[in-house]
Design a protein around this nucleic acid. Structure first.
Lengths: 207, 207
DNA sequence: TATTACATGTAAGAAGTTACATGATTAG
DNA sequence: CTAATCATGTAACTTCTTACATGTAATA
């Protein structure tokens, strides 16, 4: 009787880390974050993805509307049809208490190496809403965690680069170098961001 | 590799640009590139994604094996079962002439703004294989194109940032700033990489 | 009057994720 | 003998992409 064998590739078992606790997609978190700023319609959200630097997300209606539907089904948002205007009806969405909780839990998770390796963009999304949906202390904790993970990862990358440099092509080496530089820039950014928060806390103009 | 948010204006219809000409996924291109270095098995490829900086790709068998199958179906790779060893049979894949052509077409495409906004990681993948699957002239053309697109895009971003700074939170502002810095780093990298190619061409040690 | 912007949706298909399944060989 | 590593796959599910569908209001 065959049994067991739930596992293969133990040491390396990685695949992709599940991207969220509540099993909701990155797009869905982006929506949830935006809805906490103010209630919005699907169309409002599409416009944001089409016209702002949040444009890494798709503004496709086939992505947005079903994602909102799923959020509603899980009880993270609720919607109401606006009746006031003469325009076509708009469905305005807003997060529920449970949605707000889920968002904050995701947003304030401890940063681990894996996040830095595979989902810097998710980290930046989490951070970008900090002031609106978490505390300044959370923001500082985030930045410290990021600094610390990068501080461990960058030397590892540099070491890898040094070790394998001789065996790879110029273009391969340069591509790797570009990755390392990007991380170093992020590290410097984290330090600068942290000092911006300290400045705001201790002295500078309030708010 | 960190990615960035960012974007500029677009009017109505954008959604997501189709990511490839031949309609094959980024993962599939990564596989095709690696197979041009040497014939490999699915397991070999998984190990690469699990243990090297190419780890942004999933090493899941449920991603790799079907992707190889699709490449085979489209005639971009062919496979042969190794019989030599006593181990369990390995299927070794290698690209076909048509696969090599498709790869190079993708790799040497003209860089447009959209690439820089939405798929920097795809650009880096294309570049990382340049020496192995294209010419030094292609590499230089790529870097010049990248410089030129970034040279137009970064000021647009800076302008966006300056204009909207007053209205957004500190964390939002910092997140944007991080994106801009990443692009600036990439721009400097492109310049350095270009000069590395010129150096190799004109003077330095051959090969 | 024609186009653009507002506004919301659905259906089919592609690709990836998680988890299951199997089996051989080698190292401890 | 047991665990780990090598090695290849499949099935169910989720999400996103592409494309279609529909209709109103404002503007050129």
């Amino acid at each position: 009787m065959p049994r067991n064998t739930v596992l293969v590739f133990r040491s390396t078992h990685r695949y992709n880390t599940p991207r969220t606790i509540n099993d909701i997609s990155l797009l869905a978190y982006a929506l949830l974050g935006l809805l906490q700023q103010e209630p919005r319609s699907g169309y409002d959200l599409r416009k944001i993805f089409a016209n702002t630097p949040m444009g890494t997300f798709s503004d496709s209606p086939g992505a947005i509307y079903p994602a909102l539907e799923r959020l509603a089904k899980r009880g993270f948002v609720r919607s109401r049809v606006e009746e006031t205007s003469g325009l076509r009806r708009r469905r305005l969405f807003r997060p529920t208490a449970s949605g707000i909780r889920a968002f904050k839990t995701w947003q304030t998770r401890t940063i681990v190496r894996e996040d830095v390796i595979r989902s810097v963009d998710e980290l930046m999304l989490r951070f970008s809403f900090m002031d609106e949906t978490a505390s300044a202390a959370d923001a500082r904790r985030f930045l410290k965690g990021l600094k610390s993970e990068l501080g461990g990862y960058i030397p590892a990358l540099r070491k890898y680069l040094a070790k394998h440099s001789p065996n790879i092509s110029l273009s391969g080496r340069l591509a790797l170098e570009s990755g390392v530089r990007a991380y170093e820039t992020l590290f410097r950014w984290a330090k600068a961001a942290l000092s911006a928060y300290h400045k705001r806390k201790t002295g500078g103009a309030r708010r």
